[in-house]
Design a protein around this nucleic acid. Structure first.
Length: 665
DNA sequence: TCAAGGCCATGCTGG
DNA sequence: ATGGCCTTGA
């Protein structure tokens, strides 16, 4: 909206020059008093309209608030919610922002299009799959499925074992980086996996076969979702116009963790109108292992001409004492960051570094300190324990259970990745997509008497045709195969009419005997099946259910934690990666022992060490008032054959007026 | 020849 | 707790 219009007098001398005055924002017409609730920088971002805008937002500087209020402000100015696209890192972040926007404005905000890049890509691709010659019932594979496919391909191409050939997960890392960084596999291997240069040709051959395999079987992995979205937008002028026109205002959160493929998608999405607002913090980039590059954020102005840049530097979250520590930490990076956050929140309490004799004592300290915090009127839901990886909290989880302190765990091994849940999901996938050979293989291998070679004979016959009367194996093997075919045949015909939860129920009923046969601890796993069934009741379409479970898998399966969704009064245990963007009154960072955090595997790479450092920075900046960093000194490291006993090097030589040192007696 | 069970080593973070 | 590898058993 141009506020200033000048009628020029160049060619029309007879006309009088009339200047429209700049209108002050019409605050009286807004329901929200933006000027009062935001600082000047935030306000500038919220009030900006057309064009590209980059907001560099330090930790706790009101990034979420800025995004939330901009959504509200656009809607107040008459933009249809459906025309706004909010891309975030997790679905949860999108939901949180939109419900906050709903609180400050009204429920129109719920209609804003939002979610992760991947879920957005999925929505668009299901709609326009045919433009890419793709079936729209394609399966989305999670990581372990992809690994199975790769293993299958390697086994076919090189029946004899190759010497020092990368493991399936390493292969997948290479391919994924190649796609996300838009760099040939060859270069990725040379730069990041030089130990495998000797078999570079074979690795590339496997990659090609992997791509073909996915195409032939209507399978997409996470990277394909982004890649195909890019191709769709790139190669279909008409569709690009249409989609870009639909999403007239685009906002991207956590821009520092996007990769070049995502940057391309954004560029294409905004190609028609260039109304794009990106928000991020280069000092909080922690996803390099997934192809993200914190430098991406500085390249944003290269994607869009005349990018306006706004910096948010005042922190509203943490005490100044905590910020003094975090400023010191980030100051240790090899690559320098322009970060000196300040806060007006004053408190006498200082962050503390606590040495524990072992993980047991570390756990006891945390439990005791938590109980003291509760006495100081901190709520349990306002306390979080952060760890570099999910395993580090095992001792603590035991201690918490002993003391009956409720907790929920975020990050780490996924519910959907547990073997029994994958088994059930594989049955459902075969129902939706009978071409899904990987899932079919998985469910056949569950049967007694059927192994790899039998599977290879069976699949060509039953692919897409689950006739239970077929006779293709000796009768003893048919006895285990027939019940499977029967249930698949029966449910396949009802896929369109039955509720997903009813189909899941039938599959679980069929699968339960297999579960009991396969696992000694089946009763615990049976509870997971019940939970899975419960999740399915939230859906009216089986395909949506399966896609969602792949794109936004529910948190780790922790016994007894299921029904506590509404129970906010529990301690949070989280990986640092999963704590991105969140905040708590009191934060414990555990396992801060050198060799684990930073991990010893990062020692010889400056870039990886910087990423570990940023991770520590992200962890420490989650805390509002109390920050405790603990480390046990009895950790044995198998790879280095030594006991780890020093605190994280990121906390070395920090004066004790910034970081207090505690010993446990 | 194929399936199944046992044993050993172990690199995490996630859509 | 899990995948990879080897041995055993049918």
């Amino acid at each position: 909206m141009a506020n200033e219009v000048e009628i020029t007098d160049k060619k029309q001398p007879a006309h009088k020059k009339y200047v429209l005055k700049k209108r002050a924002p019409q605050k009286t017409n807004y329901k929200i008093n933006y000027e009062q609730e935001l600082n000047s920088k935030q306000l500038e971002a919220v009030m900006s309209n057309e064009g590209a805008l980059l907001v560099i937002a330090g930790a706790g500087s009101g990034k979420t608030k800025t995004l939330t209020y901009r959504v509200a402000r656009l809607i107040e100015d008459g933009v249809a919610p459906e025309n706004i696209l909010l891309l975030t890192f997790t679905k949860k972040a999108a939901h949180e922002m939109l419900s906050r926007a709903t609180l400050v404005l009204d429920n129109r905000c719920e209609r804003v299009a939002g979610g992760t890049f991947h879920s957005f890509a999925n929505i668009i691709l299901r709609k326009y799959a045919s433009a890419l010659k793709l079936k729209n019932n394609y399966t989305i594979m999670d990581r372990s499925d992809c690994e199975d496919v790769i293993n299958h391909i390697v086994g076919q191409m090189f029946p004899k074992k190759e010497k020092r050939f990368p493991k399936k997960s390493t292969l997948l890392d290479m391919y994924s980086k190649s796609v996300n960084k838009e760099t040939p596999t060859k270069i990725i291997i040379e730069n990041e996996f030089p130990q495998f240069e000797h078999c570079i040709d074979k690795i590339i051959e496997v990659h090609k076969a992997y791509v073909v395999y996915k195409r032939e079987n209507s399978i997409l992995d996470y990277d394909d979702l982004l890649l195909y979205l890019k191709l769709l937008l790139e190669n279909n002028e008409g569709l690009r116009q249409k989609i870009s026109g639909e999403y007239k205002y685009i906002m991207v959160d956590e821009y520092q963790d996007t990769n070049t493929l995502q940057a391309d998608v954004i560029k294409l999405l905004a190609s028609v109108h260039k109304n794009i607002m990106a928000v991020g913090d280069d000092a909080q980039s922690i996803y390099a292992f997934r192809g993200a590059n914190y430098k991406n954020i500085f390249d944003f102005p290269k994607l869009f001409d005349n990018t306006k840049i706004i910096k948010l530097e005042q922190n509203y979250r943490s005490t100044q004492n905590i910020l003094e520590l975090t400023n010191t930490i980030i100051g240790k990076a090899k690559e320098k960051y322009d970060k000196q956050l300040f806060s007006e929140i004053v408190s006498p309490v200082k962050p503390a570094l606590i040495c524990a004799k072992n993980t047991q004592m570390e756990a006891e300290f945390i439990c005791q300190r938590i109980l003291e915090l509760l006495d100081e009127d901190v709520e349990l839901g306002d306390i979080c324990v952060l760890a570099r990886n999910a395993r580090m909290s095992y001792s603590l989880e035991i201690e918490l259970s002993k003391r009956a302190i409720p907790f929920r765990k975020v990050g780490g091994p996924k519910f959907m990745e547990t073997a029994h849940i994958k088994d059930i999901a594989a049955h459902l996938r075969v129902l939706v997509n009978p071409d899904d050979v990987i899932s079919l293989t998985r469910i056949l291998l569950l049967l007694r008497g059927i192994g790899n070679s039998a599977v290879n004979n069976i699949i060509p016959v039953i692919k897409g045709n689950f006739n239970p009367d077929i006779k293709l194996l000796p009768s003893n093997k048919m006895n285990s195969l027939a019940p499977l075919l029967k249930v698949l045949d029966k449910e396949r015909s009802k896929i369109a009419t039955k509720k997903p939860s009813e189909i899941v129920e039938e599959i679980i009923h069929y699968y339960r005997p297999i579960l009991k046969d396969k696992y000694d601890d089946f009763s615990k796993r049976e509870k997971d099946l019940e939970h899975f069934q419960y999740l399915s009741t939230q859906y009216s379409n089986l395909e949506d259910f399966i896609s969602d479970m792949a794109l936004e898998p529910p948190d780790a399966s922790v016994e007894g934690m299921y029904k506590n969704n509404s129970d906010d009064d529990a301690l949070t245990i989280s990986t640092i990666h999963s704590a991105k963007g969140l905040e708590w009154d009191s934060v414990f960072i555990i396992g801060a022992v050198d060799g684990r955090f930073p991990s010893a595997y990062s020692f010889n790479s400056e870039e990886e060490m910087d990423e570990e450092l940023r991770l520590m920075y992200v962890a420490a900046t989650r805390a509002k008032n109390n920050l405790y960093i603990t480390y046990p000194v009895d950790m044995y490291d198998y790879s280095m054959h030594m006991v780890l006993s020093k605190p994280s090097r990121f906390l070395d030589n920090i004066p004790d007026d910034i970081l207090e040192l505690w010993d446990i007696e």
